[in-house]
Simulated assay, not measured.
Amino acid sequence: MTKKGDLNTYQIEIVETMSALVEVVAEDSETALLKAREMYRGEDIVLYPDDFIDTKFNTFGIK
Results as ranks from 00 to 15, higher is better:
residue 44 D to V: 11
residue 17 T to V: 12
residue 8 N to R: 12
residue 52 F to T: 10
residue 50 D to M: 15
residue 31 T to A: 06
residue 30 E to H: 02
residue 24 V to Y: 00
residue 49 P to Y: 08
residue 28 D to L: 00
residue 49 P to E: 14
residue 29 S to M: 07
residue 62 I to E: 07
residue 17 T to I: 12
residue 41 R to D: 08
residue 2 T to P: 03
residue 30 E to C: 01
residue 61 G to R: 06
residue 13 E to T: 11
residue 32 A to F: 00
residue 50 D to L: 15
residue 19 S to I: 11
residue 18 M to H: 11
residue 8 N to V: 13
residue 58 N to Y: 15
residue 7 L to A: 07
residue 62 I to N: 05
residue 34 L to E: 15
residue 30 E to T: 03
residue 53 I to V: 15
residue 10 Y to G: 04
residue 11 Q to T: 13
residue 10 Y to L: 13
residue 3 K to D: 10
residue 31 T to L: 06
residue 25 V to N: 04
residue 30 E to G: 01
residue 6 D to M: 10
residue 21 L to Q: 13
residue 52 F to I: 05
residue 28 D to E: 02
residue 25 V to H: 03
residue 7 L to V: 05
residue 31 T to H: 02
residue 28 D to N: 10
residue 37 R to G: 03
residue 45 I to W: 01
residue 3 K to P: 04
residue 22 V to D: 00
residue 47 L to V: 05
residue 38 E to R: 11
residue 34 L to T: 13
residue 29 S to Q: 07
residue 52 F to H: 14
residue 43 E to C: 09
residue 62 I to S: 06
residue 24 V to N: 00
residue 60 F to I: 11
residue 32 A to K: 00
residue 53 I to A: 08
residue 51 D to T: 06
residue 57 F to C: 08
residue 3 K to W: 12
residue 12 I to A: 07
residue 47 L to C: 04
residue 30 E to Y: 00
residue 30 E to S: 05
residue 32 A to G: 01
residue 15 V to W: 06
residue 47 L to Y: 01
residue 6 D to W: 09
residue 25 V to K: 07
residue 23 E to C: 07
residue 56 K to P: 02
residue 60 F to E: 09
residue 39 M to Q: 01
residue 19 S to F: 05
residue 40 Y to R: 01
residue 23 E to S: 14
residue 39 M to N: 04
residue 44 D to K: 15
residue 48 Y to R: 14
residue 13 E to C: 08
residue 40 Y to S: 02
residue 27 E to H: 04
residue 50 D to Q: 15
residue 10 Y to F: 14
residue 35 K to M: 06
residue 46 V to H: 04
residue 51 D to W: 03
residue 33 L to R: 13
residue 56 K to F: 09
residue 35 K to V: 02
residue 37 R to D: 03
residue 62 I to Y: 05
residue 11 Q to R: 13
residue 18 M to T: 09
residue 25 V to D: 08
residue 50 D to P: 09
residue 2 T to V: 12
residue 19 S to Q: 15
residue 53 I to G: 06
residue 34 L to C: 10
residue 3 K to M: 13
residue 19 S to V: 08
residue 9 T to P: 01
residue 25 V to P: 00
residue 11 Q to P: 04
residue 10 Y to D: 06
residue 15 V to M: 06
residue 42 G to F: 03
residue 61 G to W: 02
residue 51 D to N: 14
residue 2 T to F: 11
residue 14 I to M: 10
residue 39 M to L: 07
residue 12 I to L: 10
residue 36 A to R: 01
residue 41 R to K: 14
residue 18 M to Y: 15
residue 39 M to A: 07
residue 45 I to G: 02
residue 46 V to G: 03
residue 58 N to Q: 15
residue 23 E to P: 03
residue 36 A to S: 06
residue 50 D to R: 15
residue 39 M to C: 00
residue 25 V to S: 06
residue 38 E to P: 05
residue 35 K to I: 02
residue 42 G to I: 02
residue 24 V to C: 00
residue 49 P to I: 04
residue 54 D to V: 09
residue 16 E to T: 05
residue 38 E to W: 07
residue 63 K to Q: 14
residue 58 N to S: 14
residue 51 D to M: 08
residue 27 E to D: 08
residue 48 Y to L: 09
residue 35 K to E: 02
residue 60 F to N: 08
